[in-house]
Protein backbone atom coordinates (compact mmCIF):
# COMPACT_ATOMS: atom_id res chain seq x y z
CA UNK A 1 0.00 0.00 0.00
CA UNK A 2 1.36 3.40 -0.96
CA UNK A 3 2.15 5.71 1.91
CA UNK A 4 -0.54 8.34 2.37
CA UNK A 5 0.61 11.85 1.58
CA UNK A 6 0.49 14.70 4.07
CA UNK A 7 -2.75 16.69 3.92
CA UNK A 8 -2.11 19.33 1.32
CA UNK A 9 -4.02 22.60 1.13
CA UNK A 10 -5.77 23.40 -2.13
CA UNK A 11 -5.93 27.19 -2.57
CA UNK A 12 -9.11 28.92 -3.69
CA UNK A 13 -9.31 32.26 -5.53
CA UNK A 14 -9.80 34.01 -2.17
CA UNK A 15 -6.80 32.38 -0.48
CA UNK A 16 -4.33 32.22 -3.38
CA UNK A 17 -2.47 35.35 -2.20
CA UNK A 18 -1.74 33.69 1.13
CA UNK A 19 -0.17 30.63 -0.49
CA UNK A 20 1.69 32.78 -3.02
CA UNK A 21 3.05 34.63 0.02
CA UNK A 22 4.33 31.60 1.91
CA UNK A 23 6.00 30.41 -1.29
CA UNK A 24 7.77 33.78 -1.46
CA UNK A 25 8.75 33.65 2.23
CA UNK A 26 6.05 36.05 3.42
CA UNK A 27 3.21 35.58 5.89
CA UNK A 28 0.42 37.61 4.33
CA UNK A 29 -2.52 38.94 6.31
CA UNK A 30 -5.36 41.26 5.38
CA UNK A 31 -6.33 44.59 6.89
CA UNK A 32 -9.62 46.43 6.42
CA UNK A 33 -9.16 49.81 4.73
CA UNK A 34 -12.26 51.07 6.53
CA UNK A 35 -11.90 49.96 10.15
CA UNK A 36 -8.25 48.75 10.25
CA UNK A 37 -9.28 45.29 11.52
CA UNK A 38 -6.61 42.66 10.77
CA UNK A 39 -7.96 39.17 10.19
CA UNK A 40 -7.29 35.57 9.18
CA UNK A 41 -8.14 33.25 7.42
CA UNK A 42 -8.20 35.14 4.11
CA UNK A 43 -11.40 36.51 2.60
CA UNK A 44 -12.02 39.48 0.30
CA UNK A 45 -14.04 41.48 2.85
CA UNK A 46 -13.76 42.51 6.46
CA UNK A 47 -15.50 40.13 8.91
CA UNK A 48 -15.72 42.99 11.40
CA UNK A 49 -17.50 45.70 9.36
CA UNK A 50 -18.36 43.95 6.10
CA UNK A 51 -16.34 46.37 4.00
CA UNK A 52 -15.00 45.02 0.71
CA UNK A 53 -12.04 47.40 0.62
CA UNK A 54 -9.22 45.39 2.18
CA UNK A 55 -5.45 45.31 1.69
CA UNK A 56 -2.95 42.51 1.83
CA UNK A 57 0.25 43.10 3.79
CA UNK A 58 3.21 41.07 4.98
CA UNK A 59 3.06 40.28 8.69
CA UNK A 60 6.09 40.56 10.97
CA UNK A 61 6.24 36.79 11.49
CA UNK A 62 6.53 37.35 15.23
CA UNK A 63 4.11 35.31 17.32
CA UNK A 64 3.60 33.66 20.69
CA UNK A 65 2.41 30.19 21.65
CA UNK A 66 -1.28 30.41 22.55
CA UNK A 67 -2.08 26.72 23.16
CA UNK A 68 -1.39 23.24 21.83
CA UNK A 69 -1.78 19.50 22.18
CA UNK A 70 0.93 16.90 21.71
CA UNK A 71 -0.57 14.15 19.59
CA UNK A 72 0.41 10.65 20.74
CA UNK A 73 -2.16 8.77 18.65
CA UNK A 74 -1.23 7.30 15.30
CA UNK A 75 0.27 10.20 13.40
CA UNK A 76 -1.28 12.00 10.47
CA UNK A 77 0.43 11.08 7.18
CA UNK A 78 3.75 12.93 7.01
CA UNK A 79 4.10 13.23 10.81
CA UNK A 80 5.85 11.12 13.46
CA UNK A 81 4.13 10.98 16.89
CA UNK A 82 4.46 12.55 19.35
CA UNK A 83 4.17 15.99 17.75
CA UNK A 84 2.58 19.24 18.78
CA UNK A 85 -0.39 20.80 17.00
CA UNK A 86 -0.23 24.40 18.05
CA UNK A 87 -2.24 27.58 17.81
CA UNK A 88 -0.04 30.65 17.66
CA UNK A 89 -1.03 34.25 18.20
CA UNK A 90 0.52 36.60 15.67
CA UNK A 91 1.87 39.95 16.84
CA UNK A 92 -0.75 41.57 14.57
CA UNK A 93 -3.58 39.82 16.44
CA UNK A 94 -4.93 36.89 14.42
CA UNK A 95 -4.28 33.32 15.50
CA UNK A 96 -3.48 30.36 13.29
CA UNK A 97 -2.92 26.65 13.63
CA UNK A 98 0.64 25.54 12.93
CA UNK A 99 3.52 23.35 14.05
CA UNK A 100 6.50 24.29 16.21
CA UNK A 101 9.86 23.31 14.73
CA UNK A 102 13.42 23.32 16.14
CA UNK A 103 12.00 22.56 19.57
CA UNK A 104 11.49 19.34 21.55
CA UNK A 105 7.84 18.32 21.33
CA UNK A 106 7.44 18.18 25.11
CA UNK A 107 5.40 20.11 27.71
CA UNK A 108 8.68 21.25 29.28
CA UNK A 109 9.97 22.81 26.09
CA UNK A 110 6.64 24.09 24.81
CA UNK A 111 5.76 26.86 27.25
CA UNK A 112 2.63 28.90 26.65
CA UNK A 113 3.38 32.50 25.65
CA UNK A 114 6.90 31.64 24.50
CA UNK A 115 8.06 33.91 21.67
CA UNK A 116 8.05 32.41 18.20
CA UNK A 117 9.00 33.42 14.68
CA UNK A 118 7.65 32.19 11.39
CA UNK A 119 9.54 29.74 9.20
CA UNK A 120 8.50 28.23 5.90
CA UNK A 121 8.29 24.54 5.13
CA UNK A 122 8.13 23.66 1.47
CA UNK A 123 5.76 20.78 0.70
CA UNK A 124 6.08 20.87 -3.09
CA UNK A 125 6.39 23.34 -5.96
CA UNK A 126 2.98 24.84 -5.26
CA UNK A 127 2.60 24.75 -1.49
CA UNK A 128 4.78 26.06 1.33
CA UNK A 129 3.40 25.90 4.87
CA UNK A 130 3.92 28.54 7.56
CA UNK A 131 5.41 26.95 10.69
CA UNK A 132 6.98 28.56 13.77
CA UNK A 133 10.20 28.16 15.74
CA UNK A 134 11.33 29.58 19.08
CA UNK A 135 12.42 33.19 18.53
CA UNK A 136 16.17 33.80 18.63
CA UNK A 137 17.53 36.18 21.27
Amino acid sequence: MAELARARPKPTPETQHFWDGTKAGELRLQRCDGCAHIYFPPRPFCPHCGGRAVSIFSASGRASLYSYVINHRPAAPGFAAPYAIAVVELEEGPRMMSNIIDCPQTPEALQLDMKLEVAFERLDDAITLPVFRPAKG
Binding site: A7, R8, P9, K10
Partner: peptide, 10 residues
Protein backbone atom coordinates in the same frame (compact mmCIF):
# COMPACT_ATOMS: atom_id res chain seq x y z
CA UNK B 1 -8.52 21.81 4.73
CA UNK B 2 -6.18 24.69 4.01
CA UNK B 3 -5.50 26.12 7.45
CA UNK B 4 -5.87 23.25 9.94
CA UNK B 5 -5.60 19.86 8.24
CA UNK B 6 -1.98 20.34 7.02
CA UNK B 7 -0.70 20.62 10.58
CA UNK B 8 -1.20 17.02 11.61
CA UNK B 9 -4.75 16.90 12.90
CA UNK B 10 -6.19 13.39 13.10
Amino acid sequence: GQFEAPFGVV
